[in-house]
Design a protein around this nucleic acid. Structure first.
Length: 476
RNA sequence: GGCCCCUUCGACUAAUGGUUAGGUCACCACCCUUUCACGGUGGCUGCACGGGUUCGAGUCCCGUAGGGGUCACCA
């Protein structure tokens, strides 16, 4: 039975890289009919952010990633929050100390800093100098009895080669001399990631550890821990990093990295999920658009790429526009309506629906429905200069003055009747219809782009449309 | 700097020793057209480099270069 876990630390928003990691775990679990576990790694008490867990949960829900076990729906492997089982980690650390696989260390952070400094000055790799590694049992006992603060460190074996297989990268090996005597229990009594992670993955019977590549260098420490406990390690799969345009690790400095940012900017969950899924993996050579079911069906860990992938926003935009077109106008209403209300516009659902239908093919994000269609909700205050200088000629104004009464005389204000009037006038005057269409568009919308003019006028309505044309004739 | 990982068009990727190296985004041109968008057609660019192995290498091996990650009582 495949059991995987997504194990975030609740320190704030959800990074899109975390979303992909969560997604790959989910896809892998579902593909194999396995179990997807959510585990909260909150052992750093100094970095906790209030509400981070709730935010994480709602983000996962938004993305359509579900968990079979977790804090909200515990299975028999709980607790699923690490801060709730610190005594378990401490007991395991004690076991390691007893078997001499780990040892208490009394070095102060000041001493550690000094050691590190001198090492760096000497140009040698900064590592713990193992000052407390061989303290006598008696000394350790008395210092602990005296209440001296200490940590527990892993006693990394000397002169060993640590090998493991990575599903994505193949065989990897590290020389133990390059591995630090890692802290397992901090002086505040909480475990470090390394210990808690290994203990939990074992106790939760995790079969595959799927995580970001940044964990690769600490994997030998974890392997050593499994060995020290006498446990079978899980299989590892280290995912390639998500990158900025300059190919450095995707960071906040260079743009949006939070899933919430994309949500707020009007990206649909299925678009973000689809996009992020294809960063580092691809089920086929010919398709780009996949439903979650298709992703699950096609997902293979050994098809995951090794190289990092640049988070290319243009492609996300394209994908989002694809999904916007796929949705029904009624679906989109749910997303668009709040934005319209936020702007303070008071309009009926029917009206919004009509706007959605006209904008759906043109919108790349949900926000575009408001951004590029503002003239459906308020009169234009500015007029596109370029478009204006091209189409708002004295000649054009003259023709508009002539046509405007014909609009006023219209009994039925519809796409067809409007088109009839304009085409007839154009033919009668021996001009192309565009000579009228462009100036009317400018007068009514202020913009040089948008839906077809007749559709747009129909939605805006007779009174408002003719008023706007009148205004423009006065003001421009 | 030590260690580890990586390297196919600008970006995401396909190819599992034999292809004119394919697709998607972006970009350019043309068509459609009342604008924009959609759609259609075409185009532009790529196997980091150098050695091997092989009848044959983007695919296997070695090296070089470049990029990245990581070196905490953070995860």
């Amino acid at each position: 039975m495949v059991r995987v876990r997504f194990a975030p630390s609740p320190t704030g928003f959800v990074h899109v890289g975390s979303l992909r990691t969560a997604l790959y775990n989910y896809l892998f679990a579902r593909h194999h009919g396995g179990v997807n576990v959510l585990r909260i790694e909150d052992t750093d008490r100094t970095r906790l952010v209030e509400g981070a867990v709730e935010n994480l949960l709602s983000t996962m829900k938004w993305a359509g990633i579900t968990f079979d076990e977790g804090p909200q729906n515990p299975g028999k492997y709980g607790p699923y929050v690490q801060s709730e089982k610190t005594e378990v980690y401490r007991a395991h650390a004690a076991q390691l100390v007893a078997s001499e696989k780990a040892y208490p260390c009394f070095c102060t952070t000041e001493r550690l800093a000094l050691v590190r400094e001198s090492q760096q000055a000497a140009g040698i790799p900064p590592m713990y100098d193992r000052h407390c590694r061989n303290l006598s049992k008696e000394e350790v006992a008395t210092r602990i009895a005296a209440g001296e603060p200490h940590v527990i460190r892993l006693r990394v074996p000397i002169g060993e080669l640590i090998r493991f297989n990575d599903i994505v990268r193949g065989d990897i090996e590290f020389d133990s001399k390059t591995i630090d005597d890692q802290v397992l229990i901090k002086s505040d009594g909480y475990p470090t990631y390394h210990l808690a992670n290994v203990v939990d993955d074992h106790q939760m019977e995790i079969t595959h550890v799927i995580r970001g590549e940044e964990w690769l260098p600490s994997t030998p420490k974890h392997v050593l821990l499994y060995q020290a406990f006498g446990w079978e390690p899980p299989k590892f799969a280290h995912l390639p990093l998500l990158l900025n345009a300059d190919r450095s690790k995707l960071s906040k400095r260079q743009g949006d990295v939070a899933v919430e940012d994309y949500k707020d900017k009007g990206y649909l969950p299925e678009a973000l999920v689809n996009f992020v899924a294809l960063l580092g993996w691809n089920p086929s050579a010919f398709e780009e658009i996949f439903t979650m079911e298709e992703l699950i069906k096609g997902f293979e860990l050994d098809r995951v790429n090794k190289g990092g992938a640049v988070f290319n926003k243009e492609k996300l935009d394209w994908m989002n526009s694809e999904y916007i077109r796929k949705r029904s106008p009624e679906d989109l209403l749910v997303y668009v309506k709040p934005l319209i209300e936020k702007k303070g516009y008071i309009v009926s659902d029917e009206y919004i629906l009509a706007v959605i239908k006209l904008m759906q093919e043109r919108a790349r994000t949900i926000n575009d429905f408001v951004e590029f269609a503002s003239y459906f909700f308020e009169r234009p205050t500015e007029y596109d200069e370029k478009y204006k200088s091209k189409h708002w000629t004295p000649d054009a104004k003259e023709r508009l003055r002539e046509v405007l009464p014909e609009f006023g005389a219209l009994n039925t204000w519809s796409h067809d009747s409007l088109e009839g009037v304009i085409r007839a006038y154009a033919e009668k005057s021996g001009i192309s219809a565009g000579k009228l269409i462009h100036p009317i568009r400018l007068a009514v919308t202020g913009r040089g782009m948008g839906p077809g003019l007749f559709e747009l006028l129909e939605v805006i309505g007779k009174e408002e449309s003719t008023t706007r044309i009148g205004h423009a004739l006065e003001a421009l």
